[in-house]
Write a protein that binds this DNA or RNA. Structure first.
Lengths: 346, 346
DNA sequence: TTCCTCCGGGACAAATTATGTCCCATGTAG
DNA sequence: CTACATGGGACATAATTTGTCCCGGAGGAA
């Protein structure tokens, strides 16, 4: 990633989005010219009015010209598209990466955003944006969306915007409290998503440290039962993937547990379960909520995780949690591919 | 110039403006910290509320921190300002150039925009934007702004946006018709400025080729007198500077005049007057309107002209028209400085 | 020729966002 | 103590964006 963009992204987080949007318009225009607003809008998957705004702007900039037969690029616009092509390819050309990853991890779809969330803060927001967009696309009437905790899922919530399609959606926490900071707790995230998107939400208030007895008593409570019912009807699950050590520490786990995890080679974590590099469950957090088995009946499982430091965790969790869609960043994507390649050629 | 910035300037000039605005805030903050909203807002020449919006954003980004004593930069904000300095300088930073030019031409203020309007079309727009911004800043209740013709002043008009401060402003043409294309005529430009800014305008319809007799008759007409009255009350004058030959040709002047101008060494032109390299008037166009003498009583004279081809003209017009503020482009600025330097060391 | 389709641009209401303008509790300096 | 400047809350209003029409006209097909 170019350092200039890194700086600019801090002051203009949606710089790349706007850039890509406008580039896409020019590019489509180049291929379809001369073309009218309506057909171009539908080709770009946007509305007529919004395209019109952009085209007016591009016209001001002298990149686009309009005739009675339709719109076309000016010479300046033509050279701009040509000049931008390598840059855009570098920034957004992750199609290959996405396809490779999808094949190797056996997923339905992979979305890669530019950057490395370990190094730049805005990359997480970028993943959040991608996640929010995805949820908007997948929106279904009266659906239930279960969300797990963690910073990455939190950033998806942060990036959601009001959409008509999500107004009838109920957001629920996938699991009860796991002893995290409140902003990273599934409960809080579910409510945030609902608030931002204009949907509904249900909370599940259960303590995070439970004796077996308390657990069994609690799970019989009618309102808990009701929540679990709702939870199992979830059509979509969104969860993050954590590094095992980091997650255990964040949850203030006992030194015993930390030791045990290390011993068993835990590398990844996803909504309360810890996995080793082979994708075997080595520990599960004591918490009420969606279990791995419940995931079978879920229509779409979305995993969101980035940063090269999480590459191993993502690769380990993949085979177990079986996400259908993975949203990650460039750094993680490349690292995973590299790891898989070296593993296959020992 | 980094190629990526060049592309961005074409595709997202609006965003770059936002970027500069935010950078300015950070920069001021760095120098004044800790500081409150109100004093910072007045230092930046913006309103409290609008600054507040930006600061909220910058706080989100973790660049700014607020304490009860005021706002200050975080460490991240500090390093960002440092890192961005060269970038901003490259994009907008012609402060040195501006100061040098202001000193050498003895002007109150010089604004330099990047590029060369001879080579890139968007540079003229950039000057226009600078001019429009300036007018907005200088806005005064119930003021009169007189504008001359020409492509550069036209681009100022083009770039103006609706502003409350300009609602009570009356735009008037500085001089009557001078035989130019309608889009470049002062009349049209005055009306365009009014339309874009939401202000008022008055037009002056006088033919451009007049016999002495007709001139003297016309000038006694009540409505012409009234216009001249208004014109002389102008607080601000905006004019362009033209290359003498080009202007004469554009106005379809007679071969005689062309010859005469060449003979007398005319290099520059400003609202109807032609100057030689020494800044002496060698010819004045026959047209009713603001004369050079009238300029004495004007509060602010703004000259807008760019392109290295106009460097000589600008330098020649400067001493006579005595603009207070000059808006030009990088190419013209550098050429003028170079010319002055070589002239002083023969 | 006539009809038909698609073009850009105008218009306008609704929704959303930005902005101006207060006020207030609080911390700080004198 | 007083006096003042601070950030943040609240809220009406202005401004902008967006969705959704319509229209006259150019171009192509019959």
């Amino acid at each position: 990633m170019k350092p200039i963009l890194d700086l600019q992204k801090q002051l203009l987080p949606d710089l790349l989005d706007v850039m890509r949007k406008r580039y896409e318009i020019l590019r489509h225009l180049q291929l379809m010219q001369p073309v009218g607003r309506r057909s171009l809008a539908s080709a770009l998957g946007t509305t007529e009015r919004i395209l019109r705004g952009e085209v007016d702007f591009l016209k001001e900039q002298g990149l686009v010209r309009t005739d009675p037969v339709g719109m076309s690029l000016t010479m300046q616009g033509d050279t701009l598209v040509a000049d931008m092509e390598p840059l855009i390819k570098e920034l957004f050309g992750f199609t290959d990466l996405e396809k490779q990853l999808a094949r190797m991890l056996n997923l339905q779809k992979v979305i890669v955003v530019p950057g490395d969330s370990d190094r730049s803060d805005w990359v997480k927001k970028e993943m959040g944006k991608a996640g929010a967009r995805l949820l908007k696309q997948l929106a279904h009437p009266r659906q239930v969306v279960a969300v797990a905790g963690g910073t990455t899922v939190a950033s998806v919530a942060q990036m959601m915007t009001a959409t008509a399609g999500l107004r009838e959606t109920t957001f629920v926490p996938a699991r009860g409290g796991l002893g995290e900071t409140v902003e990273l707790e599934a409960n809080y995230i579910a409510s945030l998503m609902a608030q931002k998107s204009g949907g509904k939400y249900r909370l599940m208030h259960v303590p995070d440290q439970l004796s077996d007895e308390a657990y069994h008593t609690l799970i019989r409570e009618p309102h808990i039962q009701e929540m679990l019912e709702i939870l199992r009807s979830a059509r979509i699950v969104v969860h993050g993937v954590g590094d095992a050590q980091t997650m255990a520490k964040r949850r203030k786990s006992s030194p015993d547990l930390l030791e045990k995890l290390k011993e068993k080679g835990a590398v990844g974590e996803a909504f309360g379960y810890y996995f080793n590099a082979e994708g075997e469950i080595v520990h599960r957090g004591h918490s009420i909520g969606l279990s791995l088995e419940d995931l079978q009946s879920v229509e779409t499982i979305i995993a969101v995780a980035g940063g090269s430091s999480k590459a191993k965790a993502v690769a380990a969790v993949g085979p177990v949690a079986r996400p259908d869609i993975l949203i990650t960043d460039e750094a993680a994507a490349r690292t995973i591919l590299l790891d898989l390649a070296t593993a296959n050629t020992p």
